[in-house]
Design a protein around this nucleic acid. Structure first.
Lengths: 149, 149
DNA sequence: GCTTGTTAGTTACAAAAACAACTATTACAA
DNA sequence: TTGTAATAGTTGTTTTTGTAACTAACAAGC
């Protein structure tokens, strides 16, 4: 039963985790040191920078983040004047979030860092490898595997 | 300066994190439900199952886990009779860890689950894609990128 | 109008992770 | 020896996360 040519160090969830951690370590340092941000905060910032005005739920859906995480990230970001909140007039439950000038500046800075960082990471891959990697990661990201007993 | 054909949703650390989380979700449920294990505990178990008797530091090096995480994981695993500890006679600081019969059984079970789970994940990839993915993830895992300012 | 259900977001409490300081043991050099 | 540094592992404290319960606002049927 135990297939010997199955190496657990090549187990995809494990490998992905290792690669994800290793690859985000240095970048993490940068947004932490420069802006005192957590991963959740950086993600909210980058969604707002990328897509413009959004609500917390919209960010949650796109980023696969739980609403409490977002709530807390937004709180920190507003405290530090990176983000503003505006109640929707029609539906007063929803809040529209947007970057302040300061938030835009931080986003622009980190966007550029990310760009160089990413280039550094992929430097060792050929363009086609890079493309394939992206496609596969996107596929895996959207997968919801069920019962594997 | 801001290269418009750089899409942050394709930023490698982000993509890797998304893929890693999505791909480990269901597997996580299994070892949690069946054995009440945390990720750290599962990792220690699988290292011992895979390599046999090891010390905590050895596991730490291989798995890129901090020693406190391992210490606590080992504590839980010994409490639940999955792992035994044995002091080294020559150097009484080090402890050799090993799986009990019960630990072996759990490992065998989860190994088999992992095998099927992994097969399910890679089902949509061609063997060569799978191979390429592995190679790239291994490369990224071992990378220590520096200053990308 | 009023119930009942749903959605957006927050808050409170418990679980887990990160980080620093600690003990015990060994190594090694003055 | 004995004093200093290094290593293996643990413990304590602070952050961060996860989970569940909550408030407020809307929606829809009656």
């Amino acid at each position: 039963m135990s297939d010997e040519n199955f190496d657990l160090t090549l187990f995809l969830p494990y490998l992905l985790n290792q690669a994800a951690e290793a690859s985000s370590l240095e970048f993490q340092k940068i947004y932490k040191e420069r802006y005192g941000m957590l991963r959740t905060e950086w993600r909210v910032l980058f969604h707002l920078g990328l897509y413009g005005r959004m609500t917390a739920s919209e960010i949650g859906q796109r980023a696969n983040m739980h609403k409490t995480k977002i709530s807390r990230a937004v709180q920190k970001l507003t405290e530090r004047r990176f983000v503003t909140r505006a109640r929707d007039d029609a539906d007063r439950r929803v809040e529209h979030l947007a970057l302040t000038a300061q938030g835009q500046a931080a986003y622009a800075d980190l966007h550029s860092v990310a760009q160089h960082y990413d280039a550094g990471l992929t430097a060792e891959l050929t363009p086609s490898e890079r493309e394939t990697l992206q496609q596969m990661l996107l596929k895996l990201s959207s997968m919801r595997p069920d019962t594997f007993t």
